[in-house]
């Protein structure tokens, strides 16, 4: 028995927005799963990269933006170099993060990092975290 998924206007608009922000043709994903198999952070994720792509295709905004996965992606580009459709999933993840961050939401409280940790962290760790996780 086949299942029908209805794509609402809002869902379609969300897909278009992410396609525009990421510059990627997300609908060309064929769900082969190579991205998920290549992801070094997958054990920490609630949605696999392939699931995130599928949900983006379907415009499931809430599930995507509430997911842990988009904040765990470290932009290592392993999925990108292996994608048979030449899709850059790191860009898609960044686009999803930007949708949240641009509402003046921070995903890390840098003021809450302990002084001891701050003295130990290398500069690039904090700079990178600020760029990926603060607005």
């Amino acid at each position: 028995m086949s299942k029908t998924v209805e794509i609402t206007k809002e869902a379609d608009q969300f897909l278009k927005k992410i396609e525009e922000l990421s510059g990627e043709k997300i609908t060309s994903c064929i769900q082969c799963g190579i991205c998920s198999g290549s992801c070094p952070m997958i054990n920490e994720m609630d949605l696999t990269p392939a699931q995130s792509m599928s949900k983006t295709q379907l415009g499931q905004e809430e599930e995507l933006l509430d997911s842990k996965s988009i904040w765990i992606c470290a932009s290592c580009f392993n999925c990108k170099v292996r994608c048979p459709r030449d899709l850059d999933l790191a860009k898609v993840a960044e686009a999803l993060r930007q949708v949240v961050l641009r509402k003046a939401v921070d995903k890390i409280n840098i003021d809450a990092i302990s002084p001891e940790e701050m003295m130990e962290l290398p500069q690039i760790a904090l700079v990178a975290a600020c760029r990926r996780l603060t607005n």
Binding site: I113, P115, M118, L121, Q123, L126, V127, A129, C130, R131
Partner: peptide
């Protein structure tokens, strides 16, 4: 040098 980031972490932004 990390004293700067300890008190003013937003410098990293």
């Amino acid at each position: 040098g990390n004293v700067f980031l300890k008190y003013y972490p937003e410098l990293a932004r």
